[in-house]
């Protein structure tokens, strides 16, 4: 395989040709923050937090979409880079509720982590902020678009599932918003509550509703399990607090029609001693159903009885 050799922070790094500067730097142990970068759906380059200094470049290129090239001289934390990153974080915070004290994502939030790392205390800018209604219509996913930083990971993840693409960017500029078709609520949309969007959200915009209020991020231990409801083999996290399972979170899809609600509910029932109340959508309304109905076991049970 052909390789390229570049210099990152005065260190020579050799990576396979076609690698991005981000891959090269992270592979060599350097830190570069990312919001919108998703290795599965790479090439978006929208959040700009991963900008780096490349000698000879006209501006500060986003490392996630810049190919590493022979002889490139890269600095990941030069003064202009740090200034730009601080400003980008400040701009995000200026349009983001700073309610970390009660935010479900606190302790597991990239915006919070990077603000800490770069010492951005609060946004110096006043001005207009997003003011959307909190969408709690779906029994499994809470959508607080006021916290969304528009990284688009959820959009790309949802589009990546066959027959999905339930959410996309709507409106333009400062008014850009991720929403289902016609800016409807999630309950009214074609969403099947697979929660893959929740699993990729870097901030508190998308959270698991059943886990709401149950634990702080640092109190939980996650244990990876493979779902056995079908042969796809999707990964889920058992979320434990004090050793007890308090919920099941979507982690990573496998092939086929992955990360389905049925699989997650099945794991919930199997591992959680106090499982949530299963809800299914009937005639465009979510209603509570029995576990046998939720898991599609009614007919089988009838035969067994």
């Amino acid at each position: 395989m052909s390789t390229v050799t570049l210099t990152i922070n005065s260190q020579e790094v050799t990576v396979p040709k076609g690698s991005t500067v981000l891959d090269a730097a992270v592979g060599a142990g350097f830190f570069i923050p990312t919001f919108c970068h998703d290795p599965i759906y790479a090439g978006y380059g929208g959040c700009r937090i991963c900008i780096v200094d490349i000698k000879g470049a006209r501006n500060l290129p986003a490392s996630c979409v810049t190919a590493a090239a022979d002889g490139m001289i890269v600095e990941t934390e030069s003064a202009p880079v740090v200034e730009a990153r601080k400003t980008i974080i400040e701009l995000m915070l200026a349009n983001h509720p700073v309610d970390c004290m009660t935010c479900e994502k606190c302790g597991d939030c990239r915006l919070q982590d990077y603000a800490f790392r770069y010492g951005v205390e609060s946004a110096g800018f006043g001005g207009e902020r997003k003011d959307y209604e909190f969408d709690t219509t779906n029994p499994y996913i809470n959508r607080n678009m006021n916290k969304c930083i528009l990284c688009g990971k959820c959009v790309r993840t949802c589009k990546g599932a066959e027959d999905r693409a339930v959410i996309d960017f709507t409106f333009r500029g400062f008014d850009t918003k991720v929403a289902p078709a016609l800016d409807s609520s999630l309950a009214e949309s074609a969403c099947v509550s697979c929660s893959r969007c929740v699993s990729v959200c870097p901030v508190g915009a998308l959270t698991d509703k059943p886990l709401g209020g149950k634990a702080r991020a640092w109190e939980v231990v996650k244990e990876e399990v493979t779902c056995t409801w079908c042969d796809a083999g999707c990964l889920f996290d058992l979320v434990r607090k004090n050793g007890e399972v308090i919920g099941v979170a979507a982690k990573a899809p496998a092939g086929g029609r992955p990360l389905c609600l049925k699989g997650r509910l099945g794991l919930e029932l199997r591992y959680n001693d106090k499982p949530l109340k299963p809800m299914l959508k009937k005639d465009d309304q979510y209603v509570e159903v029995s576990w046998t109905e939720a898991l599609g076991l009614d007919e089988i049970l009838e035969k067994l009885n």
Partner: peptide
């Protein structure tokens, strides 16, 4: 008004 909204510096920065 004409910012597309994709990247943070333009979407949020020009507003401020």
């Amino acid at each position: 008004l004409e910012s597309c909204g994709k990247c943070t510096p333009c979407r949020e920065g020009t507003k401020r």
